[in-house]
Design a protein around this nucleic acid. Sequence first.
DNA 1: TGTACATCAGTGAACGCGCGTTCACTGATGTAC
DNA 2: TGTACATCAGTGAACGCGCGTTCACTGATGTAC
Lengths: 225, 225
Amino acid sequence: LSSAAPTTSGIRDRFRAHIRDEVKRAALRQLATGGPQAISVNAIAKELGVSGPALYRYFTNRDDLLTELVVDAYADFAAALRSAADDEPQGGEGALRAIALAYRTWAINEPHRYRLLFSAPFPGYDAQSERLVAAAQQAMSVLLEVLSIPDGKQATVLPVELADQLVRWMGSRGLTDLQTVVAYRAVILWTRLHGLVSLEIEGNFASMGLDPQRLFDSAITEPSR
Amino acid sequence: LSSAAPTTSGIRDRFRAHIRDEVKRAALRQLATGGPQAISVNAIAKELGVSGPALYRYFTNRDDLLTELVVDAYADFAAALRSAADDEPQGGEGALRAIALAYRTWAINEPHRYRLLFSAPFPGYDAQSERLVAAAQQAMSVLLEVLSIPDGKQATVLPVELADQLVRWMGSRGLTDLQTVVAYRAVILWTRLHGLVSLEIEGNFASMGLDPQRLFDSAITEPSR
DNA sequence: TGTACATCAGTGAACGCGCGTTCACTGATGTAC
DNA sequence: TGTACATCAGTGAACGCGCGTTCACTGATGTAC
């Protein structure tokens, strides 16, 4: 019923918003502990010292709550990247470095939320809801825009089809003044960051005795190797 | 009880092995459909037209079955890479290409199994069992060995600590005649392959309108960009 | 300012469901004499 | 070759558990007169 945002900000509405927040925080705690399917309406209620059905005053159902978590994570992640990019002189040598660092830091600090965005989603959960798609697209715009750092490298020759697809995507996202090759570079950079970060998150480097931080630094320092 | 491998290969033993296999295949089907936690003893039994408790003749419990699946996946994945490497003239220009292709092909064909290896594992599942660790280490040896392709690039200067860690890992895996820088290169290549493949698997490129195959080809064709 | 009423947060019981696992058992099947 | 016995695959009932969700309800709390 009542998952609509409260436009009128009466006393009760502010109370509602506050509780919604507490529920979400408890859900994130469970996510961090036991993975996505550990998020349980009843368990959250118990954690908040309240009966299970009480939560249905604040979220229409479990899926509604999960959607909220994902949407929040997208926004949070995008904001972190944006902020890192804004702190740095645009297009400077350190820009990529700063953004890469922000990317990793966010993921390392909240691996479960990072997984929520880029790893296997909730089982039996519909990831095609309008809200979700919108949130995802917005975050991806920020991510790729921020990673679109022109470098002095020789021009890459892209297959026409790929170039077309990139142009189409850029158009749909309002990034019209972007070189196609730069957009391509941004996508590639993203895949590299994700590769490093997602393997680190699952403990793959640690189990090999490699220091993830150092590995990341080396990989980022000479991105062209 | 009876999860030990049958050394004596009597009639009943072969029967057992056959059923064990059918159970695993059903489990993989459920994994493909509903994710890791959709693998249910009772559901598998139903699919095989048998009562739930019957399966306890073949696996001591659910975790035992899961372990089996993961171990199999590691072996299978490693075999695919090994085979691709063996089909190619060693160290040749096409070697990396062939292995990258094999890597992607395996992952694309069985994304759920690929996730089993490199994405978030089963919730509440102990991934530290001896069998599992052994299987994982063996597969990683193959993966990195196969990716250890010397190239003509200028020497990379690695931080001492990272170099030490790499040497130690190589030693523990019996890869003594490997240059440290080449091992480093292999790790980096792995992170790039994983980045591309894991993002493709979750549909991230498709949702941007990008052809994953073409993107992969471009990324692999100019790995130094 | 004081009172009456409508709103709504939260409760407890109940629903049907599926899970992993145990237990005592039946009955077929391979094996040993 | 024929019979007796031990093995063992599979059954059905039962265990305790937790899940999401509904329902009719109580009682406090904000609001309107």
